[in-house]
Design a protein around this nucleic acid. Structure first.
Length: 558
RNA sequence: CGGGGUGUAGCGCAGCUGGUUUAGCGCGCAGCGUUUGGGACGCUGAGGUCGGAGGUUCAAAUCCUCUCACCCCGACCA
């Protein structure tokens, strides 16, 4: 391709709308163009990279036994009910029938399986598609990282039993590892919460970058890694001696854990904190050790609620609770959930349920009752690993894939059953595997760049080589470069040929911005030696390569 | 949904506080010439519903009201 004919132009100035690195670079290099919030056109360079990513995915999914299909974007709204209603785009056809643009395809694929799978002989089955998805995100951001229209590879496996699902899951897991390796991307596998889709053994593939939306807690000493939504850590026992009798103490004006702990000269870990939530409209009283914080995802899962938010001060007071001095001691008629850290020590300080009053020597379960005891604490870096006791670290990243075992949630709901050898009917056991090519594209740029521009991994670069002639009047640079352009293409090397009459600085800067893995410069200077200059985008210094060797040299590198 | 911000040429911005007839600047774009190893220079030129609607006024990019879009923080989110 000739740069002079390329529809997109590079931008010198950073577009005002672009916030993060990948978004800025993708717009500046002319990979994408925004139409409305969270919706983008792919320009030739961006589209080529996206297709390369998709083809790697296709290839690995096929190797894992997948069959590619293509399901509709337009779905009847009845298929969805209330599920994901908050982020679905809905529309009406001419008969006023309500339709929805598919945000994911569990229902559609399951109804497909219900029609075509009859017998255990039809299983196992792995169906996948690479399809556009629509989600009306509360806040699209970061260019392609969180878009409202985006590409997704979603795969679904169908098996006769859990053991079959385990095999299918492992195959896709391996395929994903291969995909990220082939794309040249550093991706971390972490335990995750399965969220709105449901299911178990949920794993996310997180591409690590400071710009990521997700926080990962991991152990450098072993293989433990989990999304912060899911991560657990050791809650160390706090030695408080033998249980002592309850004691009331005056704590004038002391409300926060810091104030109370400081006033009574105990560490925050010797206190119990009360937190108040509204779960699906119902008031919930939470208890957790004073030095810990509630993880709302874990809390939501324990309460099995759809909607969870902090209670307002008015709601707390209306529930008969004294903010700043609340505890579960003597509490009646309110649902109480406690973090298991309430058992990690004795003689805690807790609220006295009267203004300016706290209790000392509070012990669970001696002094208060709870409805649920579970791990609802947020794990943070520095705490101990639950697997090996090592010191946990944290990092940020972008979720580029998510896989989980659905089981029979959808097959039961949609009547996708099969007959076993004995003629008995069972729901199909399903797995579900998402991977976002468009997000991956942005994430790749986010991870591979410098202050000059993008640094593409070879496998997903829009072209392999940036051919950059620097002609001078009376030289043969142009004709040598034209011939090299033809020869490189004939050798199967993908070339972007900068045939513009621009100054060297402009060409070099555009080459760096677009970030192809190799740059070949042809100039009077190199032609004196019957050579060209080869520069890797990852390296600072170029090398001189004889014209006769450049093609074989490049072929070896690509 | 809460908080904040921005809409003026393809891109980046100034002008708005304190209303004035031809709305500027840089980049980019077109033409000509000079340049050519890290974002060159000169000259000429094209390009604008000042986001939209309504209002105040002799007069509105500028003041007022409404509205739309986009961005950021938060909430939320496979």
């Amino acid at each position: 391709m000739r740069v002079s004919k390329l529809v997109s132009k590079t931008l010198r100035e950073v577009p005002a709308d672009a916030d993060n690195i990948s978004h800025r670079l993708m717009v500046r290099a002319g990979l994408i163009h925004q139409l409305v919030a969270g919706v983008y056109s792919y320009l030739p360079l961006g589209w080529r990279s996206l297709r390369k990513i998709e083809n790697i995915i296709r290839n690995e999914m096929d190797k894992a036994g997948g069959q590619e299909i293509n399901m509709p974007v337009l779905h009847p709204a009845e298929l969805w009910g209330d599920r994901m209603s908050d982020i679905r785009f809905t529309l009406f056809d001419r008969r006023e029938r309500k339709l929805t643009l598919g945000p994911t395809h569990e229902e559609v694929v399951t109804s497909l399986a219900a029609r075509y799978v009859r017998s255990y002989r039809d299983l196992p089955l792995n169906l996948y598609q690479i399809q556009v998805k629509f989600r009306d995100e509360p806040r699209p951001r970061g260019g392609l990282i969180r878009a409202r229209e985006f590409s997704m590879k979603d795969a679904y496996t169908f098996d006769v039993d859990e053991a079959g699902l385990d095999v299918a899951y492992d195959k896709v897991f391996q395929a994903y590892q291969n995909i990220f390796t082939r794309c040249g991307l550093d991706v971390m596998v972490v335990e995750a919460d399965s969220g709105a889709i449901g299911g178990k053994d949920s794993r996310e593939f997180i591409l690590t970058t400071p710009a990521g939306e997700d926080e990962v807690i991991f152990c450098p000493a072993c293989d433990y890694a989990a999304n912060a939504e899911k991560a657990s850590s050791v809650k160390e026992k706090i030695d408080g001696g033998k249980p002592l009798p309850l004691e009331t103490v005056a704590t004038p004006g002391m409300k926060s854990i810091e104030e109370v702990a400081g006033f009574l000269k105990v560490p925050p870990s010797r206190t119990l904190k009360a937190v108040f939530y509204i779960a699906d409209g119902t008031f919930v009283f939470g208890v957790i050790r004073g030095d810990l914080t509630v993880n709302e995802t874990k809390l939501r899962n324990q309460l099995h609620c759809a909607d969870l938010r902090l209670a307002t001060e008015e709601e707390v007071i209306a529930a008969g609770i004294v903010p700043g001095s609340a505890s579960a001691v003597g509490l009646k008629g309110i649902r109480v959930i406690a973090d298991d850290s309430v058992s990690s020590g004795v003689n805690f300080v807790a609220g006295g349920n009267k203004p300016d009053t706290h209790l000392k020597n509070v012990n669970y379960p001696r002094d208060f009752k709870v409805d649920i005891v579970a791990d609802i604490a947020r794990a943070v870096a520095g705490e101990k690993c639950i697997k090996c006791g090592g010191k946990l670290s944290s990092t940020r990243g972008i979720e580029v894939a998510h896989i989980f075992k659905l089981g029979t949630i959808y097959s039961t709901k949609l009547g996708a059953n099969f007959l076993d050898e004995k003629g008995e009917s069972h729901p199909i056991v399903m797995g579900c595997y998402g991977l976002g090519p468009s997000r991956l594209l942005a994430a790749a740029v986010e991870q591979h760049n410098d202050d000059k521009g993008i640094i593409w991994p070879v496998s997903i670069a829009p072209y392999h080589v940036y051919l950059c002639p620097l002609p001078r009047e009376g030289s043969k640079v142009t004709e040598v470069a034209e011939k090299l352009y033809q020869d490189l293409q004939a050798a199967g090397i993908e070339v972007l040929f900068d045939d513009r009459a621009e100054s060297p600085g402009v060409k070099f800067n555009d080459a760096d911005l677009i970030g192809l893995p190799f740059r070949i410069t042809v100039s009077p200077r190199t032609l004196e030696k019957d050579a060209v200059e080869l520069k890797k985008r990852t390296e600072k210094d170029p090398q001189i390569v004889p014209l006769s060797e450049i093609i074989s040299k490049l072929k070896a590198l690509i």
